[in-house]
Amino acid sequence: MKQALTLVPLLILPFVLNDFWLTQVATRSLILGIMALSLSFLATYLGVVSFAQATMAGMAGYTIAFFGPNSVGIGVQLPFWVSIPLALTLAVVSGGLIGLIARRSRGIYAIMITLAIGVAFFYFTRQNYALFNGWTGFSGVRAPQIAGLSLRDPLPLYLLSLGVAALALALVSGFVRSPLGLTIQAVRDAPGRVLALGISVTTPIVAAFAFSGLLAGAGGILNVWYQERISSFSVGLGPIIDILIISVIGGLRHPGGAFVGAVVFVLLDTFAVDLIDRERFNTLIGVVLLLIVIVAPGGLQQLASDWMARLRRPEAPKKSTV
């Protein structure tokens, strides 16, 4: 309920912001936030940091581009109500497969394996022309028109992204309260002990990766509509690191942190030109990341809730003395 209240200002936002702010900042933050959420989910509830989220998002994005209208003349046109479920399914399957490959790895080894998968996918898209059109990829990808409403327009795309983001957060909070979700968290805390309860460890891990694939895939679909193009650069080291940075800035301990991190990231990315030289963006985001890691290892979301708790605390002793 409390979470639903935060939707109200977000629904008013389009009436306050001009198209530049709405599209370049708000919509983009939501989309990047959804992709980062797929990583925060894995990190928070399975305890695995995955570098393959851009791959899962890319699977969905490429599927939309291949089976939708594009200007490179590759692929087959399918109606959106076929291509969207197909894209999500492929993202879920790729997530599950990555989970299957990485299931025995923890910590640094999970990072290495998922990074290897992410980079391998990047090079594969560069070299495959039949499906991925090499490094140029797809351009002129158009978001569909649904009931006369073009999802290319700023307002519908914003509202759709907002709806998907809210749905993604609701899905995460529901899923982690399900028996399978609890099992995933148990695997995070003590995998050997899960086995001793008669539960196989592989299924929860694969399920967690597949679920993160669903989230990443949803973000990937929105992203290809937003960018109107997708190429090897959309799944390369750049986006892989961006997703990680957003998750860390926002905080890996709470799913909502992904969106806080995305807003900060997008604001810095958009206005770095005004603050410092455009080419110094990496320096700027690096310094911000460093500050977060030193000052607030739990991310901005954690920092904010700590401050809230500190503001409330002075009242508590008063009550108890009465």
Binding site: S178, L182, G198
Partner: peptide, 21 residues
């Protein structure tokens, strides 16, 4: 509560459910 729930659900083989408890 959740730990004991998993002990029960694990042994009953009903831990794969995806809907909230």
């Amino acid at each position: 509560r959740d730990t004991l729930f998993l002990a029960v659900a694990g042994l009953r083989g009903s831990w794969r459910q995806v809907l909230p408890l």
